[in-house]
Computed example of a mutant assay.
Amino acid sequence: MYVNTKKMAVSGLLMALAVVFIVLSGILDFNTLFFLAAAAFFVGIIIREFGLRYGAAYFIGCLVLGILLAPQKLYCITYAMMGIYVLGIEFLWHYLGKHPQWEKRKRIFQIGKFVIFNVMYLPVLFFFPKLLFAGEIPDTMLFVLIVAGQIALFIYDKAYEYFLIRMWGQVRVKIFGK
């Protein structure tokens, strides 16, 4: 049986760090979204380094450990949605990479990111608003929340790209030497 020790060590350390971030999101409430987003970014690192299957297994492992260890279990739902978004866009990126003849791959990728986010965000907003907000949400506020979600998607996506390209790119050279 072949075991890649560097792969296991890196993914184990990133999983431990992701779970620490998930736990910290429940302890330090002022940085909840930052910690959850950072934990979800690690899913993207694992996918880029080791592939989609390994990344999906890593994500499931982080989610299970987060549910077991996090003091705020509802924050695990937010982490799960951020991680599923990362899994979805990385899958779409790999899928579009297999079809180089498509001329509008970049546009399809941007639309795909928008669709993946809204398939998760809008049902939660309309059918389970109690997960996001206490009390009743007026219709005018609902429109504001839809627009705010799109702005949050843009910021999250730019932060994810920056993290993966700039920050991980520098750390990756030190770890893998490539």
Rank of each mutant, 00 (worst) to 15 (best):
Met8Glu: 10
Gly12Ile: 01
Met15Arg: 04
Ala16Tyr: 01
Leu17Ser: 15
Ala18Ser: 15
Val23Pro: 08
Val23His: 05
Leu24Cys: 13
Leu24Trp: 13
Gly26Tyr: 08
Gly26Ala: 11
Leu28Met: 06
Thr32Ile: 02
Leu36Val: 06
Phe42Met: 02
Val43Met: 02
Val43Gly: 12
Val43Asn: 12
Val43Asp: 11
Val43Gln: 05
Ile45Asp: 01
Gly51Asp: 06
Gly51Trp: 04
Arg53Ile: 05
Gly55Asn: 03
Phe59Leu: 07
Gly61His: 02
Cys62Tyr: 05
Leu63Met: 11
Gly66Lys: 02
Lys73Glu: 13
Leu74Gln: 03
Tyr75Trp: 09
Ala80Cys: 11
Ala80Ser: 11
Met81Thr: 01
Met82Ser: 06
Met82Trp: 09
Met82Glu: 08
Val86Lys: 00
Leu87Glu: 09
Ile89Arg: 03
Ile89Trp: 01
Glu90Gly: 02
Glu90Tyr: 09
Glu90Leu: 02
Trp93Thr: 07
Trp93Ser: 12
Tyr95Gln: 10
Pro100Leu: 00
Pro100Gly: 06
Trp102Leu: 09
Gln110Trp: 06
Ile111His: 04
Gly112Cys: 04
Val115Phe: 11
Ile116His: 10
Ile116Ala: 14
Val119Phe: 15
Met120Arg: 03
Met120Cys: 14
Tyr121Arg: 08
Tyr121Gln: 10
Leu122Thr: 13
Leu122Pro: 15
Leu125Gln: 14
Phe126Thr: 13
Phe128Lys: 08
Pro129Thr: 08
Pro129Arg: 07
Ile137Gly: 13
Ile137Asn: 13
